[in-house]
């Protein structure tokens, strides 16, 4: 019996071990080494052929130089902060747009819901890159949006949207919207309507019952959606690269530069490790407070 229980736990843990912990250790190890023009472009690398002495040499060559370098150059802090800002603002807008859509879906006739769900998922059938490229076509100076606005006479000069942060926000909100809608929809769909009926019977108007009943009960979905959007956006590279301009500073872009332009894999790894730590801290804090709240409720 016990054996079966362990086997059951073993599967997810070996998944974590193989696909998260092992790569992470490799990245940490790389972040402690020095860059060198060679294949692979860093030193020391690990060879078992030299036996114990090789392992000792290997560890004695590692140091925290790259982390000190990161701390000393304000570029990295600015990039982290700017990514944080972009991630927060776009999560806010995804929520603002996603919640009403999910609410509408959950309140639609049951026979309509699969179709609505389909409409949300349908864009995933087209490659993500193609969808971003079509946004370039829409937002450019001579693009559809500008031509349409000029045609109806709202503007007389084309707007510069492409290659600005506005385009980045549009791209991110568009791309990540389904990740916000789906968990909120899942939590709203389960909502017991009799609770709302009771609230109205007891004298709540519609907006009161929304804020007192619906909103708190969909909180789990909102939080899940926010994390699903916030975390990947923080490290986003493709959208700022294609839609952003010269002044769009994001940590994903910096990582790319360190890795490709500078060929400095150790510094790139250090940037990645710091990014991961920065992401983990708020998540852990959040889980702590959730747990405390749950304990308090019991």
């Amino acid at each position: 019996m016990n054996f079966r229980k362990y086997l059951l736990i073993l599967i997810p843990y070996s998944w974590l071990l193989l696909l998260f912990l092992v790569p992470f250790i490799i990245v940490v190890k790389m972040s402690l080494s020095d860059t060198e023009m060679a294949i692979p472009p860093y030193y020391p690398y690990f060879t078992l052929s030299e036996g114990w002495q090789g392992i000792v040499n290997f560890f004695s060559e590692l140091d925290f130089e790259n982390y000190i370098f990161l701390a000393e150059d304000n570029l990295y802090w600015k990039a982290y902060l700017s990514s944080l800002k972009i991630a927060l603002i776009s999560t806010f807008f995804t929520l603002l747009i996603g919640y009403p859509i999910a609410y509408g879906m959950a309140n639609a006739q049951p026979e309509w819901r699969p179709t609505l769900m389909m409409i949300i998922i349908l864009p995933f059938w087209t490659s993500f890159l193609i969808r971003i490229y079509s946004w370039m076509g829409i937002l450019s100076q001579e693009g559809f949006l500008n031509q349409f606005l000029l045609w109806i006479g709202i503007i007389d000069q084309p707007l510069t949207i492409l290659n600005t942060n506005v385009a980045v926000y549009i791209g991110i909100v568009y791309t990540y919207l389904p990740f916000m809608i789906l968990p909120i929809y899942a939590s709203l769909e389960k909502l017991d309507i009799s609770l709302l009926e009771a609230a109205i019977d007891l004298g709540c108007n519609r907006s009161q019952s929304f804020w007192l009943i619906t909103m708190p009960l969909s909180k789990a979905g909102v939080i899940a959606g926010c994390f699903l959007v916030f975390i990947p956006v923080l490290g986003e590279f493709v959208i700022p690269d294609l839609l952003g301009g010269a002044d769009t500073l994001m940590i994903g872009t910096i990582l790319w530069q360190e890795f490709f332009a500078n060929r400095d894999w150790p510094v790139a790894s250090a940037v990645a490790v710091v990014l991961l730590l920065l992401l983990m801290i708020p998540i852990i804090l959040f889980q702590r407070s959730e747990q405390k709240q749950r304990e308090a409720e019991q």
Binding site: T35, E36, M37, D73, N74, L75, K78, A79, A246, D247, T248, L249, I254, Q257, A261, N262, R263, D264
Partner: peptide
């Protein structure tokens, strides 16, 4: 060279992003 490359890339980032 490696060191010069870092100076150049850093300068380029500064030029592009203003930081």
């Amino acid at each position: 060279g490696s060191k010069e490359q870092r100076t150049v890339t850093r300068l380029w980032t500064k030029i592009k992003s203003g930081t």
